[in-house]
Design a protein around this nucleic acid. Structure first.
Lengths: 115, 115
DNA sequence: TCCATGTTTCTAGAATGCTAGAATCGTCGT
DNA sequence: ACGACGATTCTAGCATTCTAGAAACATGGA
């Protein structure tokens, strides 16, 4: 993951409403949630919700799939993993022996990059 | 980690200059770096640098210790770990069996919360 | 086709965040 | 005590982001 996409992910999550939305999607795992469900969970106006969902998708943190007139959103776990890896990259470069973090994250959910 | 501090961490990192600073501090591990070093690494004006360092400290992502007239900064790995845990919390709540992420991060660097 | 429903886009105003020059504060060496 | 130096704070202007009402768009059912 390059700096740019890490920054997009971080900016995407650095807002309480978007963080709420994302965390809700995380709890929903591979199932995801349609906009109405999300709205019930977080409780703010439709246009605001749409604004933030767009932000999450743009940041690569979520994906949207149409289901008739509903739209289902899923958290993008791969993006989250990438972000985590990015943050811990080069940790304690000077003295890796002292470091318990660096590059040891056996992540990615079973079932691919989506959902 | 509660929502508020996670949000602070995320906001702290969601800015390219602060992210650069933080990542540089991460590479410096327990050694940390004085402001001059950081300035050489990232290359922007003193007041801007100070502004962002303050932001990182306020977000709990870095700590500052005076060394004569120098100030040494360290990345706060504990905060980063906390953030990572927070993000992956409750992952796939509906069907944990399907999830490879949830609560399995053996993190925290050797040597305590500082550094 | 027409209406109801679900979602997104448009818009403006308010709030927040960023940058960098100038001034300030604290520490060290002489 | 004084000057040099490292770092932070102050300030103002600029840019970005957030919110929510209104309008628009798309889909499904009657």
């Amino acid at each position: 993951m390059e700096t740019k996409s890490a920054l997009q992910s971080l900016s995407g999550l650095a807002q309480d409403h978007r963080l709420s939305i994302f965390r809700y999607l995380v709890t929903r795992g591979t199932v995801g949630a349609v906009v109405q469900e999300i709205a019930e969970s977080v409780g703010f106006s439709g246009s605001t919700l749409s604004f933030h969902l767009k932000g999450l998708v743009h940041a690569g943190l979520a994906s949207a799939t149409a289901e008739g007139r509903f739209v289902r959103y899923h958290a993008n776990f791969a993006a989250m993993d990438g972000l985590i890896r990015y943050l811990t990259e080069h940790c304690c470069e000077d003295d890796p022996g002292r470091c318990a973090i660096a590059a040891k994250t056996p992540r990615t959910p079973k079932g691919g990059t989506r959902a």
